[in-house]
Every structure is written in C-alpha cells, then in structure tokens.
Design a protein around this nucleic acid. Sequence first.
DNA 1: TTGAAAGCGCTAACAG
DNA 2: CTGTTAGCGCTTTCAA
Lengths: 324, 324
Amino acid sequence: MSRVINGVRNVDPAITEAVNAAIAETGYVPNRAARSLVTGRTFSVALVVSAPDDEPDFDDPFIGRAFADPFFGRIANGALDELTERGVHLILQRVNSAAARAQLIGHLRQGDIDGVLLISVHALDPLPRMLVDQHAAVVLFGRPVDPIAISYVDVAERDGAALAAEHLVSLGCRRVAMICGPLDTPAGGDRLAGFRDAMARHGHPYVPVIEGNFTLDGGESGMLMLLDDEPALDGLFAANDLMAQGALVALREAGKRVPEDVAVVGFDDSSAALAARPQLTTVLQPVEEMAKEMARLLLARIEDDSLPITSVIFDPTLVIRDSA
Amino acid sequence: MSRVINGVRNVDPAITEAVNAAIAETGYVPNRAARSLVTGRTFSVALVVSAPDDEPDFDDPFIGRAFADPFFGRIANGALDELTERGVHLILQRVNSAAARAQLIGHLRQGDIDGVLLISVHALDPLPRMLVDQHAAVVLFGRPVDPIAISYVDVAERDGAALAAEHLVSLGCRRVAMICGPLDTPAGGDRLAGFRDAMARHGHPYVPVIEGNFTLDGGESGMLMLLDDEPALDGLFAANDLMAQGALVALREAGKRVPEDVAVVGFDDSSAALAARPQLTTVLQPVEEMAKEMARLLLARIEDDSLPITSVIFDPTLVIRDSA
DNA sequence: TTGAAAGCGCTAACAG
DNA sequence: CTGTTAGCGCTTTCAA
C-alpha cells in the first residue's frame, strides 16, 4: 500500500491497480504528519523576512515595509510557482528579534521545516551566518553582505547599472548624476560601482552622487540636493524605482521637464515604475524567475545536503518607457 | 515534561522550573509532526489568495497583482502578528484553478491544515461556498458577495464613504463626482451607496459616477471622462487610492490644481496615498488590525467548531493630507 | 514479491 | 501530583 503510493519496488500490477482504484474511490490522501514523523522531512520550507530587531510595530519602517513591499509578494509568487508543483508548503515567517532567530533555528533543527528561503533586508543581519553555521538548507535572495558560504540568487547589479549608463549616454546626456542606495548593502555599492565604471568608459569620469535610502522621500530630497549643486543636470540614474519616482516629483517642482530637460532611469521595474509620471525607463530584475530558482536550489539541497554552495546570477534588462 | 510544555494540570513548581531551564538551555522545540499525529491538529493555517482561473502567468493581471499588492503583505503581516504568538504557522497558497481548489479541500479534510484565511479577489469565486459546504474553518477578508454563512471581517464601507462625503461638503465643494469600484463587488457597491446617501443627506442628491476597476489607469481615464461631462467639478471621491492617484494625473494634465480647483479623497490609506502628489486625503482601513482579528476568529473556531458564524466590522478613519 | 512488525516523538488516558 | 503506556499513520526494515 505504502509501496504503491510511493512507487517503490516491483509490485504486482494487479494489486497496484486495486490500490489505485481504492484510492480514487475513497479520496484518500496520505497524512503529512505521519509521513514526516518517519521520514524526518516536513515537505515545507519557510520564506523568512529578516529585519533589524524592533518592536513588532505596524508603523515600523523596516519589517512593515518589507511585507508591504510588492517585491516581497513577487518573490512569494515565484517561489510558490515551483513549490506547489512539488507539493511543498511555503511557510511565512517574520524574524526580527533574537528570540525569533532562536525559534527559527529550533524549527530547523527539530525538523519542523526543511529549509529556508531568506530575504535579509539589512546589512548587519546575523541570521545568514547563523543559518550557515547550523548547516541549514538556505538560499538567500541577493548576494550576502559578508562573503559567507551561502547559496544565493542575484541579478548582475553592475551590468544593470551599466545598461542605465549606456542608455543615458546614448541619449546624449552630458551631465549625469546618480542617487545611489545605502553603501553598506551589496545592491547599494554594486549599482554605484557599475554605473561609475560604465560612465567612465564612455568618457564621463565624474558623476555626482547622493546616497539615498531606497525610499520615495529619499529620492525627492536627493534630487533637490543634486539640483542645488548642479542645476544644469540632464540625466539621472536612481538605484531603485521608488527613489526615481521621488526624483520625478522634485524635478517637476523645480520646473524641469522629463525627459526633455532631464532623463531619468530607475531600477527594479516595480509597480512604482508604472505609477510614476512619466512612466519610468528602468532596469528590470526578473524577480519571479529568481525566486523560482531559489526554490529549485533549496529543494535540491534538501534532497542532497552534500550539494555544493551555488549562486545563480540573472541578467537584467532595460525597459524603455517615457522618462528616458 | 509534556505537561509542563502544554501547561496542563498542576505540576510541582520545582520540576516545572527545572524543565523550563532545560528547555531554555537546549533550545528544545517540540516536534510538530509528532504532536500533530496524535492531536489531529497541525497548528498551521493557510492564507489563500483565490483568483479567477488562469494560466499561472507572471503577467497575469489578477493573481500576480494580488500578491504584489501591498494589501496582501499587510494582511499577511497582521495575521502573522497573532499567529506567531500562538505558535501557529502561516502557509501561503495561491488558488486559481479547479485542481488547486480540490487540493486545498483535500488538505483540509486530511487535516494537513487546520483552517483558512481567505482573500477572494473576484465576484464569482466558488471557493468561499465550497469551503463552507465542507464545514471547514474559514474566515474571509471582506464581506462575501453572496450572503453565505461564513465568518468575515470588514470595514464599515458605507461609513467610510460617508466620511469622504462629509469632508468634501465641509470644504465647500458644490460639484462632486465619484469614481467607484466594480459594482459586482461589495466594496464597489457599498462605497458608492454610502457616498450617495451621505451626499444626498447634505443636499447633493445628484452625484455623477464613473465605474472604475481599482487601477491607476482606471482612475486616470475615469477622471478624464468626468471632466469631459462636468468641467466645473470641484470635488472627487475615488473608491481607492490607486484610482485617486490616477485621477490626480488626469487633473494635472487638465491644468487643474489640487486641492484648490478640485479636492480629491481616496480610500485605503495605502502606500499610493503617500506616493501621490499632493499626498492623498483618504479613508483609512485598519488592515493589519482586521487581519489580526481574522486570525483570532479562525483560531477560536478551530478550537471550538461549534462557535457561531461571526463578522467583525471595523471603523474607518479619515486621514487628512494635502489633496482635500 | 509481499506480509509483518518496529518504531518516528508526541499526547492522553490510566494507574500509582 | 507524577510515572507509565498505548497508540496517532506512515515508512522501512526484516522475514517469509
């Protein structure tokens, strides 16, 4: 019976058929708990959003934002695509305290969860390293801040930034600035480095830069400062769409037309890119595909824990709309 | 041991303390599978997003949007708040086919999942009724389209719309229009009815209305049509923030100043309200609190399935910003 | 090839 | 008040 369900060994075709018929008739579904108890696997993985330690406050700008961020939903969506097909449950977890971290490790060690898809939203997060030290099955979204032995998926950040640079240059922009992300995050640093390199290659060794924080307000105030220093600006690259959207607001208030006076390129191709007016030309990250790959890597690792650490890097694409 | 963990019966305080100390030291976590097997409960509930049957396409406007919608994240966040505290896992599920519905029912009947927090995003969804027919433990976000015996949480839609109406009237608006939501959804119909009633009570029996679809584009084109019919408009209520944001775009292009020429009020207090310029005056739905209550209702129902069907209605609040 | 039996880690019932 | 024991439903040995 158990044998025919799991397709193990050679079984008499007649009995196989009989069992299958009975299953079909009864609507039998095996009990996951019982199966888990003996196999030691639960066939469920956690999608954990790890944020700085904080009060569980709804207005908390970090963890609250992480969940409300469309990005999170896109990752969940992509991962689910692979997991549902394989019959694996996706468990949502928010981790923002030492207690929560300990609990997560406990779940893993206890075998309540087979592995973790990790979204870590701040630079000093101890969780990635903790998970690695536990030899847990983990895949990270984005390159880790410290070079630890962890599998991850990422987009080729520098290439994406270069795409933006080349587009701005090809448009004939002469004075181009950038609003970058927090420099203590990989995405912050890489997008800046990639942009600077590409601009330099195209004969623009100097690029004024303001450090933003990936928020709309940050983009707006960053743009104001940039305009103050360099009123003749004719091109801008923002390290994400939200900041680009904020920059658009500042530009409009300053009486600048986009893209005629200033061309603006964002990053992510998030819903903000569509909501902005003019709609943003931006660098697309294939988030759903990346999340799907995360799930694949994790499942493979769970089935064979001797598998090597792997990272998969995806190519970004330039999506041309109205802002540049 | 089992007794102290589950807080059952009177146990010697000394031994209780000893066990707790050991637990704290070892980082012991009870095995859920084993517990499930004997109790018949899994201590996990599903958060299911039910959408029209569709290809699992990333560009799919419905299910893709549902997950990427910040609303979804806010619900997950609120529910998690209650569930983590009670040690219950939240499993994410996307249901958009007959097969997926059957699978969900199977999980429920098999006891792989104790109950369902349901977000149903379209009018003809058969899932709510199916779940009720199965006597499953379910709580719906928002009033059901058909009057079926299902527990749910909702915001007092009509009161929220009335809040918007009263604000617009108090501002001295004389010619007020509305962009409502799809009339085959409760939120669509109720916000319209509530707004009309309140306007009529304040001496404005006639309110021009355009039906939108809750999207930014819908708000933009709706506003254009409204302006066409009634160029002297001086007030607008949009049934959600996204449409209000779209209306703002159309208004700006038409050369109207907001709020000087036209006052605009939205609904939801979503991130769009903050992203819009001017920032939106809007009706706040306490989504996280609502989701928390959903979790509470569901857990109570799981523990005692003789509990009556319950609905909890939350009061909306007017958040005054710059658009009205 | 197949039947039988031994647990997986827990809870609940039952003695002590 | 506390120790012991019988399973929960499955997979996986081990015999036959």
